[in-house]
Simulated assay, not measured.
Amino acid sequence: MVKAIRIYENGGPDVLRYEDMDLPAPGPGEAQIRQHAVGVNFIDVYFRTGLYPPPSQPFTPGNEGAGEVIAVGPGVDTFKVGDRVAYAGTIGAYAEARNIDVKFLTPLPESVSYETGAAMMLKGLTVEYLLFRSYKVQPGDVILVHAAAGGVGLILCQWAKKLGAFVIGTVGSEDKAKLAREAGADAVILYRQEDFVARVKEITGGALCHAVYDSVGKDTFPGSLDCLRPFGTFVSFGNASGPAPPFSLGVLSSKALFVTRPSLFPFIADQARLREMAARLFDVVTSGAVKIAIHSTRPLAEAAEVHRALEARATTGATVMIP
């Protein structure tokens, strides 16, 4: 029996119930891990509200965590009891312990804490596919990062800067602007006070951006398209303000724009690719080029309050829950 967050029906944060849950022995191909830290991401809200359908109900939300292997199921020889591991991409993280298919697990270096591991896997692997597999950022590229002070945004700004990009970030407050600048943003736009499209034109001298990375959705569309130069790429990877509305592909033709809507899960479905992505992430973090900002650590029992803050856009950096 372990403590876990369970959801019996879709809805607001109040549907998150903290209760006892049976945990069977790990099955074939599974490991059982005692979780030392659990990551929080906006995709957790999507599953809670039903925007993304869960595999079944009731279910335990959460797609990211880090901990220690305490048992392995039949046929598992890639991990053993006592191994430090981290993961992203499979639902069920909001729990003291869980069973997980080992294909999702990555060995966690001793130099990376459990809290950092839980805060970095989903967000960091997301940034890896954004920068290297959706639009491959080159030195001198101009990019726009919406929600630049969020968990993904702060990693994205740092990593893109290391790659030699000129980074423009949008944020909602002066405090968040300071965080984005510290993360490497060359210019910051306060989207609640300024027209971000006009400011991008001003900042770039009318040249506009090679790529726009947009996790906001409805509130920033179609303005994000107007920030792109000819042959620019719009990368939509989230819907924090709601899904972007349908649009005619014809609007892309005047500047021959590229649009992509990737997600992490197809990228990490292949274990060899996952290991490659994770190795690149661990390298950039352990070198100090990218720092993982954990701005809030809360008990797992307070998951409802954590979701309220997340949806109110009252968070910066990563939030980690401790079971």
Rank of each mutant, 00 (worst) to 15 (best):
L281G: 04
W159C: 08
F132V: 00
P53E: 13
T286I: 14
S236I: 12
V45A: 03
V251Q: 12
E68I: 15
R308N: 15
S56M: 06
L179Y: 01
V40F: 13
L225M: 10
K80M: 11
G164K: 04
M1R: 09
D270H: 05
G73H: 11
P54V: 02
G223L: 08
L163V: 03
P230E: 13
L249T: 09
L208S: 10
L156N: 07
S254W: 04
T319V: 15
E115K: 12
I143K: 05
F79S: 05
Q57L: 14
K178Q: 10
S236E: 15
H295M: 13
L208I: 10
G217N: 14
F104I: 02
F196E: 01
L252R: 08
F282R: 03
L190E: 06
G62P: 10
V212F: 00
G150H: 12
T60Q: 03
I322P: 00
F42M: 01
Q35E: 14
H307W: 02
T286F: 02
T116C: 02
V76L: 03
Q158S: 07
E202R: 11
L310G: 07
C157N: 15
G39P: 05
S236M: 15
G39I: 13
R181I: 06
M1H: 14
L144I: 11
A66M: 01
G250N: 13
L249Q: 10
G223R: 13
F265E: 14
A118K: 08
A185S: 15
D14E: 15
E128K: 12
Y87H: 09
F221L: 08
A31L: 06
A240S: 15
E115N: 09
